[in-house]
Design a protein around this nucleic acid. Structure first.
Lengths: 115, 115
DNA sequence: AAACTATATTCAGGCTTTTGAATATAAGGT
DNA sequence: ACCTTATATTCAAAAGCCTGAATATAGTTT
């Protein structure tokens, strides 16, 4: 903690963009793969990837690869706190499937739900 | 509350500038006149006034005029909370005089302190 | 009402950001 | 090996921001 003004300015610059804010707001409910974010925003892949890169470079999100998918999540709890201060701390906490999204989370069901 | 992403993006854009962050950090300890901010930052008047205008337009600060001086303060407690999340919530809470600053706060003493 | 002090606004050149298009890479399937 | 899917990177033109210089305004004092 105790960041310089220049550091914070860069962080806020990454936040000063409505598409990026929308992505962060999605991520408040948990980790998501790129293709899911793409479907949620209805934006093209390259564009989403660019915005994710900006968020990554600002240290706001981190990613991990699992097979073909890359999953993004908020970098740490301080970021959560900052977003709570901005968005208010209402969130659903639950994953939302999206029609037409090809990602595993949207196209599979846990075994215990099959009868 | 419940602001749009575009609104929040504009707010963060105003925050994405180290001079403006420095001004806001000063204002966390209380209302200040423009000339005091000018002295604290060691920047020219027109420049400070421009940054204050940006902060005002973003709704981060409000001003009131008293004679020749114009005093600025943080717009509301939500802004305080947001800045606490960013800066940490350490603050002195006390006004700091500045050598060479011509403003009333720096050049006068309360009557009860004269003996 | 003129001069002065404190603050605000306008403008324009330079600089950075934004975003679409094209292309690259990485992993998995056949 | 090749093809496909998922994601990342590069590039360049357009759009927007930053900031210094000049100027304007609002209130006070003489």
């Amino acid at each position: 903690m105790e960041h310089s003004y220049a550091y914070l300015a860069d962080l806020f610059k990454a936040l000063s963009h409505s598409t990026r804010l929308q992505i962060l707001d999605l991520l408040r409910d948990g980790e998501l793969c790129v293709c899911h974010i793409e479907a949620a925003l209805d934006k093209r892949q390259a564009y989403v990837s660019q915005q994710l890169m900006a968020l990554r470079e600002a240290g706001l999100v981190v990613s991990r690869r699992h097979g073909l998918q890359v999953y993004y999540r908020l970098a740490d709890t301080q970021i959560d706190d900052l977003l709570d201060a901005a968005f208010g701390n209402s969130r659903t906490g639950a994953f939302q499937r999206i029609d037409g999204c090809p990602c595993p989370s949207c196209t599979t069901i846990p075994i215990e739900q099959i009868h």
